[in-house]
Nucleic acid binder design. Sequence first.
DNA 1: CATTAATGCTACGAGATGGA
DNA 2: TCCATCTCGTAGCATTAATG
Length: 291
Amino acid sequence: MYKASDPRKGGRPPFDAVLMFKVLVLQQFYNLSDDQTEFQIRDRYSFCRFLGLSPEGRVPDAKTIWVFRERLKQLALTDQLFGQVLSQIDAAGFTARKGQIVDAALVPVPCQRNRRDKNARIKAGDPPQEWSEAKRRQKDVQARWTQKHGQSHYGYKNHLSVDNQHKVIRHYAVTSAEVHDSQVFERLLDERNSSGDVWADSAYRDQTREQALARAGYRSHIHRKGSRKRALNEREQAANRKRSKVRARVEHIFAQQANRLIRTIGIARAEVKIGMMNLVYNMRRLAWLTG
DNA sequence: CATTAATGCTACGAGATGGA
DNA sequence: TCCATCTCGTAGCATTAATG
């Protein structure tokens, strides 16, 4: 799937694609910048051994890593890589079971320091033309602010579904942070789960969705929300507490990897980074499951 | 020599730091 | 508190290296 050129024509041979993929895995695992990754590969024996390189030999340059990630973006290969890991997890016997949990994690990026008028124009989809080309490519015009629990967050959102048995990420979707969780719910549903149970917090609650889920054979455990007109009664509250118990067991797993700042600029690159984040999470999960 | 990818160079943004 | 300056990081073009 990753083959750019015709080897008969000659040209400088690239680093092995599998090697480069492993570099990205290391980078994500230890949360390193491109330059740090290059440095640490040279510096750490364990990295070299994992990659099958010798520290005296040639090691991919920071830019080579960047260019490789850029290639993944252009060819839209992140999803395929994620899928490959997923099918290996399935093959190891950890197929999706006992229902699924849908949730979203915020992925912060460095806050923009724009003036108010510029921000208004960016939000309207009209980024300032007076910025020089060099400046424009350093400005993220796709990240957005959002509120959660009374706090402001800036960046993107990693929407995902996890199976309840193994806590493996089965589907994910990346949007800017302002997109409401509820808007991508259907894309995340995993129809291959052996159980039709679905848990989610009250942000996803919606009358037509409940009906659609039931028609499709799912059993919804989405939290009920109270309204100003009518608070939840005793029985509904008890049901919500029961649902929370299932969701609480994934929250702390996300906590360890969520809220990790990424520094890429634009949503396309954020997608690659977040895809790798989810992929590496699944790899760790598989390692934990196999002991 | 043509071709391809690795790497060098440079511009730039954001956050940290430290002095006035 | 303000702001100059330093550090770290990304982006993209220019240049160089390695192949048939």
